[in-house]
């Protein structure tokens, strides 16, 4: 009756809404948690203390060097054809503008192909990308490479339509990368509305002039920590079932959705198992990653530190795509392991979350999966996820306690059973 007991406790029993309530206190107290910030330090201290108070085992911090970039004062104004205040959010790792700002004519393009075709028009201009949202995975390259591609053709700055599937004039930030040998130009995201408006103006042949001022600063890498807690296995304590989410977030909103929800259902999995007095045969280890938003920085260092033990990692699980209404798990592993996952997911029939999809996804677990460790990621209703992602809208208001209960039940049943089965998943 263990699966039923976990579901009952998480969804109907004393623990219902606990992950939501814990997350609300955490996010309301700490706020956003950008890599290198004092807020992130406070978040890690908070969690270290909370996990100890919860009675979990081997609570400890593992040091990591993470990027330290800070947003400064940001301001953008359309000057021609009319005065219009443009909502912007500088992109992570962007350089600042000169103190006096940049005033330049705009070149609007809808794709990198169009930019390359019109390269001769770009010199000295601010390139505005108005790429359509296809999917996050496909469209996000405009955010990560937009500044580099614009700089290659002589632009002085780039403004990139937010990677968002819906907008109420909200800019959405994110990390971007420069390339060695290519000039570093300031880059920021703008709202879908402003990108489309400038595109319409441009199509009509209207000259657009924008003034941009950004005060970003990049500091030397700073020390942060992956936060770890365990329930030590009773029979094979050296073997690990890893559940995870990331504790860092962007510096806007509260990071409640990305990835507070994933971090707190991972904590909830260990709490539920402890509350039920269960101890699986293998060690159930929770890792709250740091520096995920800068490209899985904490997770990569964790992998380098622990990879010699890779044969003892049974499965790596990460929830980093929301904790809305769950439908199942995405799984990476061989056919035999997938069949086992399907059997385990059948235990979640009482809450109708039984699907096993192809290919787990998670920046922080990819290092392990690439090297043969089975992996799983939570699948939930993503329909509104990119409305809020990396924006001021990522707050507790988008979270739903009942949906988090269901996510916690899935996360706990799956991780517990894999940790308690007599044999590791085949690989």
């Amino acid at each position: 009756d263990i699966a039923k007991a976990i579901i009952d406790l998480a969804v109907h029993g004393k623990a219902q809404n606990r992950s939501y309530e814990r997350l609300a206190v955490f996010t309301d107290t700490i706020g956003p948690r950008l890599s290198g910030s004092k807020n992130l330090d406070a978040a890690i201290k908070y969690m270290f203390s909370a996990l100890q108070k919860d009675g979990l085992e081997n609570v400890h911090l593992e040091p990591v060097k993470v990027p330290h970039w800070e947003r400064g004062e940001e301001f953008a104004m359309m000057l021609e054809p009319r005065n219009h205040s443009i909502a912007i959010l500088g992109l992570g790792n962007s350089v600042a503008t000169p103190p006096e700002g940049i005033r330049a004519e705009v070149l609007v393009v809808a794709s990198f192909d169009e930019l390359h075709r019109r390269a001769h028009e770009a010199k000295g201009k601010i390139v505005v990308y108005n790429q359509p949202f296809v999917s996050y995975g496909e469209t996000v390259r405009y955010r990560s490479l937009g500044a580099v591609e614009a700089a290659k053709v002589g632009a002085v700055a780039s403004l990139i339509r937010s990677i968002a599937s819906f907008s109420i004039d909200s800019p959405h930030t994110g990390w971007q990368n420069y390339q060695s040998g290519v000039p570093q130009i300031p880059t920021a995201c703008i709202s879908v509305e402003d990108a489309e408006m400038m595109s319409r103006m441009s199509c009509r042949g209207t000259k657009i002039v924008v003034y941009l001022k950004m005060g970003a600063k990049t500091y030397p890498d700073s020390t942060s920590f992956n936060t770890v807690a365990e329930i030590v296995g009773s029979k094979y304590p050296e073997q690990i079932v890893l559940v995870s989410g990331h504790l860092d977030s962007w510096d806007v909103g509260q990071g409640a959705m990305d990835d507070g929800g994933g971090a707190f259902i991972s904590w909830e999995a260990l709490s539920l198992i402890k509350d039920l007095g269960l101890r699986p045969k293998r060690t159930l280890r929770m890792v709250l990653w740091t520096g995920e938003e800068q490209g899985g920085v904490g997770a990569e260092q964790y992998y380098q530190l622990h990879k010699e033990n890779i044969s003892n990692f049974d499965i790596v699980m990460e929830s980093d795509e929301g904790t809305f209404k769950p439908s199942g798990l995405a799984f990476t592993g061989n056919a035999k392991a997938r069949d086992i996952m399907k059997e385990i997911m059948a235990l979640l029939l009482p809450i109708n979350v039984t699907e096993v999809y192809d290919t787990a996804d998670g920046t922080d677990i990819n290092f392990w999966m690439r090297n043969g460790v089975p992996g799983a990621s939570l699948r939930d209703d993503l329909s509104k996820y990119f409305w809020f992602h990396h924006s001021q809208g990522d707050t507790m208001t988008v979270q739903d306690p009942n949906q988090m209960n269901l996510c916690a039940a899935v996360w706990t049943v799956v991780s517990y059973i894999i940790a308690d089965m007599e044999e590791m998943l085949p690989r």
């Binding site: 009756d1 263990i2 699966a3 039923k4 094979y236 073997q239 044969s311 035999k336 069949d339 086992i340 059997e343 385990i344 059948a346 235990l347 049943v413 059973i417 308690d420 089965m421 007599e422 044999e423 590791m424 085949p426 690989r427």
Partner: peptide
């Protein structure tokens, strides 16, 4: 260790199914 060094997986799938069913 529950996973043998050569990666063989000694249990049949039917055994594993029954084991998992025990968690209902």
């Amino acid at each position: 260790k529950s996973l043998s060094k050569n990666g063989n997986y000694p249990k049949t799938f039917e055994d594993i199914k029954n084991e998992i069913a025990g968690y209902y």
